[in-house]
C-alpha cells in the first residue's frame, strides 16, 4: 500500500522533505517506522509521536493506509 508520510519540525531536518509517499507491504505502524529508519539514519535520534489519518496512534496500531504524520515536541516560546 502507498502511504503519504508528513514530517513536522525537527524531523524535516532529517528527511529534507515535508511530505513523501512510501510503499509498504502493510502490517503495523512499527513496520513503517522501520522502513523510515533505514531510509534516514538520523531518525532514530529524534523524539516523535505518530498520527495515522489525523489521529494519534501507537507503534502496534495496524496500518490502514492514507496518511501518517511524524510529530516531534516543540519547546520554544
Amino acid at each position: 500500500m502507498y502511504i503519504t508520510v508528513k514530517y513536522f519540525g525537527q524531523i524535516v531536518e532529517v528527511t529534507n522533505t515535508q511530505e513523501e509517499t512510501i510503499e509498504v507491504a502493510g502490517g503495523h505502524v512499527s513496520d513503517l517506522v522501520e522502513v523510515l529508519n533505514s531510509k534516514y539514519d538520523q531518525l532514530e535520534n529524534k523524539d516523535f509521536q505518530i498520527a495515522q489519518n489525523q489521529e494519534l496512534v501507537s507503534l502496534e496500531t495496524e496500518l490502514t493506509g492514507l496518511e501518517i504524520a511524524l510529530l516531534p515536541p516543540f519547546a520554544g516560546g
Partner: peptide, 18 residues
C-alpha cells in the same frame, strides 16, 4: 485536538489525541 501550524506553507493540521 492538537493543532500544528506551518507559517511557510500556510498549512494547518489538526490531530486527534486521546
Amino acid at each position: 485536538k492538537f493543532l500544528c501550524y506551518n507559517a511557510l506553507l500556510n498549512q494547518t493540521s489538526t490531530l486527534k489525541i486521546n
